[in-house]
Design a protein around this nucleic acid. Structure first.
Lengths: 223, 223
DNA sequence: AAAAGTCCTTGATATAAATCAAACGATTAG
DNA sequence: CTAATCGTTTGATTTATATCAAGGACTTTT
């Protein structure tokens, strides 16, 4: 799971911000099929993005927090292809994409910045494909927790404790697992003394152990 | 799996093309860690992109054919984070990214085009997350075959027959399955009269059946 | 404070896919 | 032409996770 310090994103994009918008917990910022007009920089709060199948299966494609940009999925077809749902009361800056493009033509630094944001998302999703295609439940959850706490730490929060904003079911959807498996894996990590879990509260007791689970040593082969 | 007619990509980007490059089957166009300088438009041939873990697990992140653009992963860190391997002798146009950005500032149409290419890749990877997180082996292979034949058809090839450029193992890596499962699933689809398979040759006999597997009807609930 | 609704945990069992193993077919090298 | 290699198929068995089921914990409503 690639990580980036997106916390400075907002600063550089301040100039293109037109207005702000409040989104209450549980509300949609945008939904599948909505016309695409703007990117959104999260100021406060926490979002999930998810897509759903014709037959109703849902896949969470990401969790986003302050300083991160959502809405990039809409550029290609001029319609959004996912739902962005606030998992807690949130505020976003609306950045009309026409403005972003206009200013990007004027300021190469902004242009490069926009390209990096999109490339970062591509690389993040490459990492997700590796997780979903190759890793076991424990590895996926370890990677998820490390990524989440790293991003929170970059925003000034603890590097070991956090309050999850999402349910076990949402974590499971993101990681390609069922909620029972998430729960069992939390319990396993807790039993092993690697984390402490109490509902939405998670404390990482042994970050090195967690990293080892995520990056297991290859088996030593003789000669 | 989202699809797009990327066949026109090259035309619009013709102006930024500096030079061409031949890549022999099995050779790397670029590799993980290489400095990022350029995007590449495939003129002829077929590529895979893949990433690998510290412990050696490999994940194929995409298969690319004529008209498609590779190298977007390198923008964010100025280094490539995946390997691009030619699965058959290929020729690419090298598009130095500095040129792409310069001309994008000059021509809004090109700027929009570049943004759409990146957004399309993000949306494609969202679809892959849905596949890897939610679908069964048969559904994944059906989606894969439909996507592949659709892209080939957009390039003037048959809409029912194709020669696969990749091994069962590479398909498996892409779809998060083992090669034996790919082989068994091919056999299953063949036994069901939906496709005809003979090594790398695949013919789709019942495209509607294949689409039904990909998009299974939700169970009819009473009332 | 009781009731209702979510969300979470844990146990028992089922299942899809992985793994292990062997043989087969196609292609390449000698 | 034969051997060797690589990719593929198929069978037997194992395993990780899903599914089904029940109860527990917290939160909100009344």
């Amino acid at each position: 799971m690639p990580v980036g310090l997106e916390i400075t994103d907002m600063k550089k994009l301040d100039e293109v911000v037109a207005t702000r918008k409040q989104v209450k917990q549980g509300q949609l910022l945008f939904g599948n099929g909505d016309a695409f007009t703007s990117l959104y920089a999260i100021r406060t709060g926490f979002f999930k993005t998810c897509i759903s199948n014709e037959d109703g299966r849902e896949q969470v494609t990401g969790f986003q927090m302050a300083g991160e940009i959502i809405g990039l999925d809409g550029i290609v077809t001029d319609r959004h292809s996912c739902n962005a749902v606030a998992l807690e009361d949130a505020e976003v800056c609306i950045m009309p994409f026409a403005n972003v493009e206009e200013l990007s033509r004027e300021f190469p630094v902004l242009q490069r910045h926009v390209h990096k944001i999109m490339s970062r998302e591509i690389v993040r999703e490459n990492g997700m494909m590796m997780m979903l295609g190759n890793m076991r439940a424990e590895e996926r959850l370890a990677a998820f927790l490390l990524n989440l706490v790293q991003r929170l730490h970059a925003r000034g929060f603890s590097q070991s404790e956090m309050i999850l904003r999402m349910t076990r079911e949402e974590i499971g959807s993101y990681l390609g697992l069922k909620l029972e498996t998430i729960s069992r894996t939390f319990s396993k990590l807790s039993d092993d003394g690697i984390i402490e879990v109490k509902q939405r509260y998670v404390k990482i007791l042994a970050p090195e152990e967690l990293r080892k689970i995520y990056n297991p040593q290859p088996c030593q082969t003789s000669i």
